[in-house]
């Protein structure tokens, strides 16, 4: 356990706590981006360079921005207070999460299977990752492509207002505006 590991894990955990506990949602999204950047640093520390940079690109670059967009698009509703620590759901939620985390931590600390292995420093060169993706995991890669296409089309369709549905929404409104006889 070295100093850079301590700093990176502290950044990650503090960012995560801020992301779930801050009141303002935009601050939450920024804290989430900080936590994800700290995780990318942890991946680099663990010598998984490709995964670390993929994490930076996908999470810090795309998912955090997507969350900020969603916050700004749904802005009208965040004037109401969102979960100050005294609301009903906070105590059982945090208690349950603390119980689950405590169980896992106790299991980790008491485990004997996690014996210190030989401290080799493995390498994951991009060439080897690409070869594996193109040979052994090619079916999974194709499935991920299909999944991403389906998710893209599905997200567009879900978030889109269909013109027919909009006209169907307008009709009953105009009808209700007319006093029925």
């Amino acid at each position: 356990m070295t100093a850079d590991f301590l700093i990176l894990s502290l950044l990650t955990l503090v960012g995560a706590v801020a992301a779930v506990s801050l009141r303002n949602l935009v601050h939450c999204a920024l804290a989430l981006a900080a936590a994800l950047a700290g995780l990318a640093g942890l991946y680099l520390h663990l010598q998984a360079q490709f995964v670390g940079f993929a994490q930076l690109l996908v999470y810090v670059g795309a998912v955090a921005i997507l969350i900020v967009f969603a916050i700004l698009l749904t802005r009208g509703s965040d004037s109401e207070p969102d979960g100050p620590p005294a609301t009903r759901g906070w105590v059982p939620g945090a208690g349950l999460a603390a119980a689950a985390a405590g169980l896992v931590v106790a299991a980790i600390l008491s485990s004997r299977a996690l014996a210190p292995s030989l401290q080799s420093s493995p390498e994951a060169p991009v060439r080897a990752i690409g070869e594996q993706l193109m040979t052994r995991y090619v079916l999974a890669l194709e499935l991920i492509g299909i999944l991403l296409t389906a998710a893209l089309i599905g997200a567009v369709i879900i978030a889109m207002t269909l013109p027919s549905r909009r006209s169907a929404e307008h009709k009953p409104q105009s009808r209700t505006s007319i006093p029925d006889l």
Binding site: L13, A16, V17, V20, G93, L96, A98, A100, V104, V105
Partner: peptide, 8 residues
């Protein structure tokens, strides 16, 4: 710990 924070 990260999982616990996310679950909370």
């Amino acid at each position: 710990l990260l999982f616990g924070v996310g679950l909370a």
